[in-house]
Nucleic acid binder design. Structure first.
Lengths: 348, 348
DNA sequence: CTGAAAGCGCTAACAT
DNA sequence: ATGTTAGCGCTTTCAG
């Protein structure tokens, strides 16, 4: 009776089949040549014992652990867990497992994780880095980011100064179009809420500015408010700030999925309805968005995850490969939270 | 210049320090005895090369990979990702990594994952099994569940017939109290929506029935409607069914977090407001719940995750340990979605 | 077509 | 206090 556990080794199979372990290896690994007769004997022994090769031993020998790691801020974030879901699904198809590492958006934890997964010899790394624009990686740890020995690609967030593949949404363009949509409705005073430090948000801001400039609307920098990642209910505070300081605001444009929930809370607190009192447009879809009929820039998380894994495997096979960025189209899903502005206050 | 990668082995350190690798091992592993002088030499060599031991090689030797696996339905589920977050945090404290395995609530995938993580020699497994009440594990795969060679504990869901530790909320009692709360408000016609097959939901139903019986309210089985896990928008369909077939319903009691969103959708579609038109009480907290002021039975996911990891480590140290169940108190958080029923329709 | 043997990097029992 | 060596389970030359 087989038990499928690790008690049986290749030697046990060899003994039972009456061959050498080299031969068993050939059958299992499907290489070299074995006579049909021996192959059958071996197969029988394998299923008799329910033998499964020890991945650790294979790893030591082959320098491949059949494991990839995903390093990200927090698995509780909806964008992240949808991404991990897609990644794991894709990895499984190739019999790879996925190690999950939360950095809690903390530099030290990111470095710690990067170090330990290296010593674990993961075959590849998918990184949504904490490193925000302006922050510099200490020389001491730079090898964690640019050493070519283990394939790594950036997902969603880029690190300026490190040349690695990047898979992300077409943030600038999608944001440009979203903003244009608001402008086409008649909005001229669009307040923006986002965590500016992240490279994605920077790009979304670029798109926003481009649309404004194209429409001849001056960009008022105080209408762009910045959220610290760690702040609790940042969306609420910033929506309040924006609405207080800029009562002429007719539309709110939220650049991070995490922020939107508490923006809604603030709107509710003030008794403001969308789209009648204020229009609302946000990034990243969520159950809430559908419930509230919020017009949303939806990222194709599945596709991003899939592309990321595919590219990582390419790199694992051919580490010399050229570095490049892949953009996945994000889509504006128009629901009911945006309309022609009712108030036509002047700009300050 | 160190590079922290795997190019350097214990031999390199030994050579550089001018000692044997056994000595290096003693210093690294902090066992046996080494003179202060040699220790220093070794330490210098270690930091010179930025040497990090190869976890794979250690694993082969020690039969420990410093990895635990979490097997669950889907990381996209909010209960699950909050759990994984807690688990990973706790695991990191002990320098353990976490492997994530989505079963997609599919039996075959669960078995496949269980097999591969075994061959990967994970040190422990946390399982939220797909096996629902009534389903039987094929003999062939039973070893995956009851073989004692690798410590495993059940989280949230139990498998009847397999004796393993279980960490879960006090589902019966918390559900009893939640139902009692609705009854105390005056509700007698409480519709229940849940995926009945799961052991947790069964327990919650028991608590619901107990409260009803205690209050002398007959349990009407057609007011308990069952959702298939995989059905899209099951909450919506079932809320509709309940409201159509039982117009006397004054309160909706939702037993799974995934269902609540679309229940709200159906309420919205019908123009029904909570708590004025219908009271609503649900399990598992979520951003939506706060936004909608929904009274909720909140599970202490953090504590469940922490307890699960702690217990798993106990088992890893002492596999012979007695099997037992730990219950974590879930709490009823009263917000504004429940009130005294306005309509006093008779029971059918 | 098959087997013997070396070795991946580390640990630990044994020897000095 | 330190070094030598066997071996964890597997793959892969190299011989035969």
């Amino acid at each position: 009776m087989g038990n499928g556990n690790q008690r049986y080794t290749i030697d046990d199979v060899a003994k039972l089949a009456g061959v050498s372990k080299a031969t068993v290896g050939r059958v299992i690994g499907n290489y070299g040549s074995v006579s049909e007769k021996t192959r059958k004997k071996v197969m029988e022994a394998v299923s008799e014992l329910d033998y499964v090769p020890n991945t650790i031993a294979q790893g030591l020998r082959n320098h491949s652990t059949k494991t990839i790691a995903v390093v990200l801020g927090s698995i509780k974030n909806n964008y992240c867990n949808a991404l991990v879901y897609a990644i794991e699904k894709e990895a499984m198809k190739r019999d790879y497992n996925v190690l999950i590492c939360n950095t809690h958006e903390n530099l030290d934890k990111e470095i710690k994780h990067l170090q330990t997964i290296r010593s674990r010899q993961v075959d590849g790394i998918l990184l949504i880095s904490v490193y925000t624009v302006g922050k510099v990686i200490p020389d001491k740890y730079r090898y964690l980011y640019d050493s070519p020995d283990i394939p790594m690609i950036f997902v969603d967030r880029n690190i300026i100064g490190i040349k690695k593949d990047l898979i992300e949404s077409n943030n600038e363009q999608a944001s440009y179009e979203a903003t244009k949509y608001l402008i086409s409705l008649g909005h001229r005073n669009i307040g923006v809420i986002g965590t500016v430090a992240y490279s994605t948000v920077q790009e979304r801001l670029k798109g926003y500015r481009r649309a404004l400039q194209e429409a001849g609307i001056p960009v008022e920098s105080s209408m762009i408010v910045d959220a610290e990642y760690s702040e609790n209910r940042a969306g609420q505070r910033l929506a309040a700030k924006l609405l207080d300081e800029h009562p002429e605001t007719t539309a709110l444009y939220v650049l991070n999925n995490t922020l939107c929930g508490t923006v809604l809370l603030e709107l509710k607190r003030r008794g403001l309805k969308t789209p009648d009192d204020v229009s609302l447009l946000t990034w990243d879809d969520d159950e809430i968005n559908e419930l509230f009929d919020i017009t949303t820039v939806v990222q194709k998380v599945d596709e991003i995850g899939k592309k990321a894994v595919n590219r990582l495997f390419e790199l694992m096979e051919n580490p010399q490969s050229q570095v490049y960025t892949q953009k996945v189209d994000a889509q504006l899903v128009i629901r009911k939270s945006c309309s022609v502005p009712k108030k036509h206050a002047e700009r300050k």
